[in-house]
Design a protein around this nucleic acid. Structure first.
Lengths: 243, 243
DNA sequence: TAGTGGTCTAGACCACCGT
DNA sequence: CGGTGGTCTAGACCACTAA
């Protein structure tokens, strides 16, 4: 079909859009296999190569996972390797492994202030859930987070649910609320520990900490989580690969 | 050609290796066009599609740059869009533009200590160059860096060369020493400004700063630069996209 | 208009996985 | 073994750039 130039989008992108749509609709769930490339090609009336290119892109974006000989899977935060996919903090020694543990502190309902509303793209005053937690590496508290969630998407989230769940928050959000975190954006500054942070992370007041603000997005760049955290970098550091 | 399985590497990766080799040998220089896909296919006796896949990977790695209708170019730090490719610090307002300016402070010869030697993979005691500089956004000093370079690769680098050059360091390193920075790894902590840092960045002693340690690699994951910097995050922040 | 990269197809064969 | 993704090829056509 002819296309006016500014709107031009190659076939494989349109296919990508259709697959994304099927994912959003819940046709295929996280952790499950999606149909084979041949089947998808038949369904969308294109060649296998075109489906392949669409899937290639989505695999590069961590939306799908290819497994040779088995099939293509919907990426899931339930997968141990994906659980702390967005956490860049690693222990000073041994830059690998050492999965942290999330300890909920409290969790309550509130109304969105202007900043939360802007970031989450909801109405000021709309219901939100605020959640505080600590991340421990081994025994030590290293990260303190305050997390803002639009209530509409997390209906039923409470302290008990958090305490029962002994895995990552995103795996909880995915399994209980069907939310898939696709990408995130972090803004990092250095701050001095205030009294609350100092207590939380068991450091002296005034200790330099990383202040990490994160906005997390689902499909279609829709923000579904806002968190503000402080990281203690006495025995850990934030590791970033630049390409 | 048949291959025993653990050593198996697809054709397009071997082509990638050959192109990389040509780049390292200086056959095509940064900013220049490389031969067309058809020509490369003929040269390596493979199909255009195979060359294409090799180039696709290298473009994804920021080693090559495709330009439809014009050709494929060797990525260059001379390109204004690539100059501060590894710098993640952005002004509080307007997350774009605002290129900083690099001001050299001093530059001298020294012998590699054990840490520098380990990081740069050279012999302890080998000659290195140490360089200090400040990055200014507008009039304000925001970043202070101490940069360690193996002398062997940067022979002739001195204060005068730095003062004459009014662009990014990596574009200098590329044009004068033929070095191409491919990727880098940063370790970030929060620290309190010591006296030197406080003077350099015009902040109070004790102000929390980001401590950013970077190792930069060329082809073949060979480290060619080590820098330790402090970033003032009063009016700027470190922006990181997580995918 | 000629030359480049970008898309799309169709088909063959290989590597890997489960049964 | 059959089915999946992974590689490789050959060829047609489209979109963009420069002269």
């Amino acid at each position: 079909m002819a296309q006016i130039s500014p709107t031009f989008s190659p076939l494989y992108r349109q296919i990508r859009g259709l697959i994304l749509q099927a994912l959003e609709s819940g046709e295929w769930r996280p952790g499950q296999v999606i149909p084979s490339e041949q089947e998808l090609a038949a369904r969308f009336n294109v060649s296998q190569g075109t489906v392949r290119k669409a899937i290639d892109e989505m695999a590069a974006d961590n939306i799908l996972v290819r497994r040779q000989g088995r099939g293509t899977y919907v990426a899931s935060h339930t997968d141990p390797r994906q659980m702390f996919r967005f956490l860049r903090l690693v222990p000073e020694e041994s830059e690998l492994l050492a999965h942290p543990k999330s300890i909920p502190i409290d969790c309550w309902r509130a109304k969105a202030g202007s900043e939360a509303a802007r970031v989450l793209r909801i109405e000021p005053g709309a219901a939100i859930i605020i959640l505080r937690r600590v991340l421990q590496f081994g025994r030590k508290p290293v990260v303190g987070d305050e997390i803002y969630l639009p209530e509409e998407l997390y209906r039923g989230l409470d302290m008990e649910m958090l305490q029962v769940w002994n895995s990552s928050l995103y795996s909880l959000f995915e399994t209980r609320f069907g939310l898939r975190m696709i990408r995130a954006k972090e803004r990092i500054r250095a701050v001095a520990a205030d009294r609350a942070a100092a207590e939380l992370l068991q450091v002296d007041e005034g200790t330099p900490l990383l202040s990490v603000e994160r906005v997390t997005y689902t499909y279609g760049d829709r923000p579904v989580e806002w968190r503000r955290g402080v990281y203690s970098t006495a025995e850990h550091f934030y590791l970033n690969d630049l390409a």
